[in-house]
C-alpha cells in the first residue's frame, strides 16, 4: 500500500512539474511539502541525484570549414554565439553540440585542421561542461574516426543535477541509422531509471520522419523512440535541419536547433531544399542559438530562439542590447 501511495504522489507531482522544461520550479515544490521531500528523496535515490535548477544551451551545425554563397563569413556566427553565451548574466552549466561541428573534406588532414579550429572556438566557452555528438559531415566519410580520436565515444550518457542526458550517434554508420549495437546499449542504459526520470537525448538527425525525402529522418529512429516511450519526461534535441522545429509524440518532445552557418527553408512550405540565400545586410539572419530554461509551470520546455542579429549589421536590436537591457535569456 505504501508503495502505491508514493507512486501516486510521485506521478502527480511529476505530471505538473517534472520534466526538462519544468525543473526550475520542481525543486521548490518538492521541498515545500513532506510528500514533495519524499518524492525528491525517491528521485535522488533512483536517479542517483535529485533534480535541482540549472540551465543549458544547445548549439548545432557550426560546419567549421564551410565556405560558400550561403554564408561567406565562415565561423563568424559560431564565434559570436560563443561570445553571447559567455556574456550571459547567468552562465549555463552545460553546452551541448548536436553535430556537424565541421564541414567534411576529402583531405583527412584538412578535415582534422577544421576540427582543431572547431575546438579552438568551442574552447573559449566558459561553461564548465561541454558535450558533443557528431553529424554526418563530421563522421560520414571516415565512419567517425576523426570524431572518436578527438572526443572519444560518440554515444554515451551522463547525469547532471538529476537529469539523465543521452548522446546518440545516428551518423557514423553508412546508412542514417543508430544501429543495433547502440540500441541494445540504450536499452541497458535506460533500465535503471524510473519512468518519471527527466531524460534529455541529444543527437544529430531527427529520430522521427520529418522529411525523409530531404534525409531528415533516422532509419531506426522508431526503435529508439519505442525504448523511450515508457518514460514520461523525454526531450530529444537535434540539429541537421538548420532551422527550429518542434514536434511532440507520446511523452517525447523533439526540438531542432538552428544552424550557425546557414538555414534551410520550412519543410512544409513546398519549396526545394536549398539554403536560404545569404543577406549581407543581415548576416546572422535565421542563425542562432537555442536556450532551454529549466523552469515554468508548463511541462513543455520554455524555448528562447536567439538570432545573432547585431545593431551594427542589421540596424535592429542586437543581442548585446538585450544583455544591456537586462533581458534574461
Amino acid at each position: 500500500m505504501k508503495e502505491d501511495f508514493d507512486r501516486r504522489k510521485f506521478l502527480k507531482i511529476a505530471g505538473i512539474s517534472i520534466g526538462v522544461g519544468a525543473l526550475f520550479q520542481v525543486t521548490p515544490l518538492l521541498g515545500e511539502t513532506a510528500a514533495g521531500r519524499r518524492v525528491a528523496s525517491l528521485l535522488g535515490k533512483k536517479n542517483g541525484e535529485a533534480p535541482t535548477p540549472f540551465s543549458f544551451v544547445q548549439l548545432s551545425d557550426t560546419h567549421v570549414g564551410f565556405s560558400g554563397p550561403p554564408n561567406p563569413n565562415g565561423t563568424q556566427a559560431f564565434e559570436r554565439a560563443v561570445e553571447l553565451i559567455n556574456g550571459l548574466p547567468r552562465q549555463p552549466e552545460l553546452v551541448l553540440f548536436t553535430g556537424d561541428l565541421t564541414h567534411d573534406s576529402e583531405n583527412p588532414g584538412e578535415h582534422a585542421d577544421r576540427m582543431r579550429k572547431f575546438q579552438q572556438i568551442a574552447g573559449r566557452l566558459r561553461a564548465p561542461l561541454v558535450r558533443y555528438v557528431p553529424g554526418e559531415h563530421d563522421a560520414g566519410l571516415d565512419g567517425g574516426k576523426l570524431f572518436h580520436d578527438t572526443f572519444g565515444d560518440s554515444h554515451y550518457s551522463f547525469d547532471h543535477r538529476g537529469v539523465h542526458f543521452i548522446a546518440l550517434d545516428n551518423v557514423s554508420l553508412a546508412r542514417p541509422n543508430v544501429g543495433p549495437e547502440q540500441i541494445a546499449w540504450l536499452g541497458k542504459d535506460l533500465a535503471r531509471f524510473p519512468k518519471t526520470a527527466p531524460i534529455v537525448v541529444f543527437t544529430h538527425r531527427p529520430l522521427f520522419d520529418l522529411r525523409p525525402d530531404w534525409e531528415w529522418f533516422t532509419g531506426d529512429g522508431d526503435e529508439v523512440m519505442n525504448l523511450l516511450a515508457p518514460y514520461e519526461n523525454v526531450t530529444v534535441l537535434y540539429g541537421h535541419i538548420h532551422r527550429e522545429h518542434s514536434h511532440t509524440e507520446g511523452h517525447a518532445t523533439h526540438l531542432a536547433a538552428r544552424s550557425l552557418i546557414f538555414a534551410f527553408p520550412d519543410p512544409e512550405a513546398g519549396v526545394p531544399k536549398k539554403p536560404i540565400p545569404f543577406d549581407p545586410q543581415k548576416p546572422f539572419q535565421n542563425l542562432g542559438v537555442r536556450t532551454l530554461e529549466q523552469g515554468g509551470a508548463s511541462r513543455k520546455p520554455r524555448v528562447q530562439e536567439v538570432e545573432l542579429t547585431l545593431r551594427e549589421y542589421a540596424g535592429t536590436v542586437g543581442i548585446q542590447q538585450f544583455l544591456k537591457e537586462g533581458v534574461s535569456l
Binding site: 573534406s105 576529402e106 554526418e136 559531415h137 566519410l141 525523409p212 525525402d213 534525409e215 532509419g219 531544399k273
Partner: peptide
Amino acid sequence: TFLAICHHFCGAQHG
C-alpha cells in the same frame, strides 16, 4: 512526383 535520395553519405554535395 517523388524524390528518391542517396542515403549513404558520399561527400560535400551528398545532400
